[in-house]
């Protein structure tokens, strides 16, 4: 495949951007989870372990955007941790969104289309009422 010089430069730019985005996402998620974890241990450290042997499933406070944000704003330890979890899950998704912009700048229509399909699949699984 022939590559023009500008093509190579563009590709490298995209790669740098994607790499940085992934790193900052993971670092942010770990810091948030760490802060939440410290608060959690300060508050509940001496309490006995919750029963993880039987699966009950988490309540709305931990499973919905609004629940997590509300709790995290109130500085509730567990919701702050869940916020870190959200940031972590969002990192690869944002990476795709970023690639979409990059491919659009490169005027690579085929890959704008391919990237859109991947984004659609993920958005369907977020908003498509896959909750069972």
């Amino acid at each position: 495949m022939k590559k023009t010089i500008s093509g190579i430069f563009n590709d490298k730019d995209v790669e740098q951007l994607v790499g940085q985005m992934l790193r900052y996402g993971v670092i942010t998620a770990s810091i948030v989870a760490f802060v939440g974890g410290v608060i959690y241990l300060l508050h509940f450290g001496q309490a006995p372990i919750p029963n993880y042997h039987d699966f009950k499933g988490e309540g709305a406070g931990y499973t919905t955007f609004s629940g997590i944000f509300k709790g995290a704003l109130a500085f509730n330890a567990t919701e702050v941790i869940q916020l870190g979890v959200l940031v972590l899950i969002a990192t690869p998704i944002l990476r795709i969104a970023m690639s979409l912009v990059a491919f659009a700048v490169e005027k690579d229509k085929l890959y704008v289309f391919i990237t859109l399909i991947v984004l659609c699949v993920i958005m369907t699984s977020i908003f498509g009422g896959l909750k069972v």
Partner: peptide
């Protein structure tokens, strides 16, 4: 990362992700 995120959003909404396990 992307593959795991696609199913992670389903599992999160289903209540499989516990904060007490998640941070360690």
């Amino acid at each position: 990362g992307v593959t795991a995120a696609a199913s992670a959003v389903v599992y999160l909404q289903r209540g499989y992700m516990d904060p007490g396990l998640a941070f360690p």
